[in-house]
Simulated assay, not measured.
Amino acid sequence: MKITFCCTDTKAEPWLQGLAAALPGADVSMWQPGAPQADYAVVWAPPQQFMDEQAGVKALFNIGAGVDALLQLRLPPDALVVRLDDAGMAVQMAEYVCHAVIRHFREFDGYEADTKAGRWGYRKPRLRSDFPIGVMGLGVLGERVARALAQFEFPINGWSRSPKAIDGVRAFAGAEQFHSFLAASRVLVNLLPLTPETANVMNQDTLGRLLPGGYVINVARGAHLVDGDLLALLASGHVAGATLDVFRTEPLPADHAFWGHPRIILTPHTSARTLREESIAQIVGKIGALARGEPIAGIVNAGRGY
């Protein structure tokens, strides 16, 4: 069995060592142009040349949660595209989103400003019932986030392309219920996959349908958000603030209006990082199942984009 590794901006050696240790006897190597044909590939943002040269690969294991960059390439015709089911990312995402929601709800940014200015003051407690949270996208990560937020007794709304039933979550599904979902939410958490249908989904119209004083948390992809529309809604007061972890261009350009905005919190695409050991164990398990002819979870439907 030959496994090739082609992951942009990723230190290869620990992955190669981990895969080799977990698959004794396998030929594990980093891809170079002209390399021999592999049976399986572990990838992140590979070049088109890789796809063209590895036309016979059986499966491409994507080490990040999103597969949008991969699906923009011409893929080997018979290769399965396999995403990680979780590999430690769901709990990280739940931590991040819960922190962002609670920081806003409890007005900790205001208390932080007060203490820096030497002021000792209180704010009137807010009611959780006034802060319904809408989780947009209820896959593995979205469901974990929705369940975590429900533990803090906020009203939780969830929207997905097809109906989902999650305890403690008011479910909305399909295009016909999308506007109702937005209108029932004050905080919007985006966990959608990026597809042609979801690009620019957070825009003047959709964000304008949130309850007044809305709050936006984007942890999916920068191309989901129309930057100028968010800035306009912040200026109007309809949106009170935002926590953004992903951006159309990364790193965020130095002259971007998000830098230094008093009501936007920025983080450098770090809401949920790939955990190498857990990812390797999952990939190895799936390679074994495929070799035995068994079904595996996480196969991407290229037509849907996830």
Rank of each mutant, 00 (worst) to 15 (best):
Y96F: 10
G56Y: 07
A26Q: 03
M93D: 11
A26D: 03
P33E: 05
I102Q: 15
V43I: 12
L23G: 03
M89Q: 15
R103Q: 15
H99A: 15
A59S: 05
A45D: 13
P33D: 04
A26G: 02
H99D: 15
D78S: 14
L75E: 06
L80A: 06
A22I: 04
P46V: 04
G88A: 14
P24H: 01
A20Q: 13
M93P: 01
D78G: 13
A94S: 15
Y96H: 09
R74T: 14
L75C: 07
A38C: 10
V67L: 06
L70E: 00
N62E: 03
V57G: 00
D85T: 15
D52H: 10
P46H: 02
G64H: 05
V28D: 00
V42F: 00
C98K: 05
Q92G: 15
K58N: 08
A45E: 12
R103E: 15
Q32T: 12
E95H: 14
E53A: 00
M89E: 03
V101A: 02
V91Y: 12
P33S: 02
G88K: 02
H104Y: 08
G64I: 09
V81D: 00
Q72S: 06
P47G: 07
G25Y: 07
A38Q: 02
F50A: 04
D78P: 06
A41N: 06
W31H: 01
L60Y: 06
P76L: 11
N62F: 04
A21S: 09
D86P: 02
A94Q: 06
V101I: 09
P33L: 08
D85P: 13
D78M: 14
A94H: 13
Q49K: 10
Q49P: 04
A22Q: 10
E53P: 00
Q54M: 12
D39E: 13
Q92R: 12
P77S: 13
D86T: 14
V101Y: 05
A45Y: 11
D78E: 14
N62Y: 05
S29K: 07
K58E: 07
A26P: 02
V81E: 08
A21D: 12
I102S: 14
V42E: 03
D86I: 13
M30E: 12
I63M: 03
G56W: 09
K58G: 04
D78I: 08
L75Y: 01
A20V: 07
L80G: 05
V28M: 04
H99G: 15
A65C: 11
M89K: 13
Q54I: 04
Q37M: 06
V28A: 08
G25A: 06
I63H: 00
Q54Y: 09
A90V: 13
D39Y: 04
P46M: 03
A65G: 06
M93T: 11
A79C: 06
P36Q: 09
Q32L: 13
V91K: 15
A45H: 11
Q32C: 11
L23P: 01
A100W: 00
V28L: 00
H99R: 14
F61H: 09
A41E: 05
K58A: 08
V82T: 02
W31I: 05
A79E: 02
V81K: 04
R103C: 13
A55F: 03
D86H: 01
I102V: 15
G34N: 02
I102C: 14
G25S: 07
